[in-house]
């Protein structure tokens, strides 16, 4: 990967590595302070830009943040709420009042049951990491059709591509509706041939995304660019 960050310095670091940065540089994500110096806390690429040093991790799990668009699976149903597995360290709570339907108390199960998938938004994450999700909002709904591909969240940038071009190409070549979410779950909906193409491209990104030559490998799956 070449640097496009206009002079930002790139190198791979492992946890514990001391970071050489100009005095006064602040620790960003994946970086902490040890005395007066900065130390990497994650495996990944070090970026120093402006007065902040941070590490773009090679691998990371999804950590919910408010505003995130996510795909969750119903893990449990109570009388008045659903628990959603959003692939993070804690499940999310979807109260009846934030569902898109008018739900009678005790009738939550009639709308969504165990194993159902939903497109939702993270509304709130408090300090103890309790997560509340909502289905009130444009496009948020129970997912009835399509295929969900699980992409490690740190590779979502590659799926989207610069200025969203890779995602556009995926949609065009597969003729599918593709919804990418912050928790790495990608909904692909269309005919089976298109789904197969999209899945093949995503699988390739998952397995070899960081290796050089991604563009030409995408071409061989999606057909030539333009």
């Amino acid at each position: 990967m070449n640097s496009n960050d206009g002079g930002a310095e790139l190198r791979l670091v492992v946890p514990g590595d001391q970071i050489d940065a100009p005095p006064g540089t602040q620790p960003g994500s994946g970086v902490c302070k040890r005395g007066d110096s900065l130390v990497a806390t994650k495996l990944g690429e070090l970026k120093i830009g402006g007065d902040v040093a941070h590490v773009v991790p090679t691998f990371t799990k999804y950590l919910p943040r408010s505003g995130d668009l996510v795909i969750g699976y119903v893990e449990a149903v109570m009388n008045n709420l659903w628990f959603l597995d959003v692939g993070g360290p804690f499940n999310a709570l979807l109260p009846m009042s934030l569902a898109p339907w008018k739900v009678e108390f005790g009738a939550a199960r009639e709308h969504m049951g165990y194993g159902d998938a939903v497109l939702a938004r993270v509304m709130e994450v408090d300090e103890t990491h309790s997560v509340v999700a909502t289905m009130k909002g444009v496009g948020l709904r129970k997912i009835k059709e399509g295929v969900i591909f699980e992409m490690p969240p740190h590779l979502m940038g590659l799926v989207i591509g610069s200025k969203g071009r890779t995602l556009q190409r995926l949609k065009a070549a597969s003729d599918c509706r593709i919804i990418n979410t912050q928790n790495g779950r990608i909904l692909i909906d269309g005919n089976s041939k298109g789904i197969a193409i999209a899945r093949k491209a995503l699988q390739m990104i998952e397995e070899t995304g960081h290796a050089p030559g991604l563009h030409s490998r995408l071409n061989s799956i999606l057909g030539d660019d333009e």
Binding site: E75, G115, A117, I148, S192, R199
Partner: peptide, 23 residues
Amino acid sequence: QLVPQLLRQQLAELAANDERTDG
């Protein structure tokens, strides 16, 4: 383990076309 309903649906569709998830 949670079994997504969509996964079962998808596997049935693939089976109808005599296909598998990994090709």
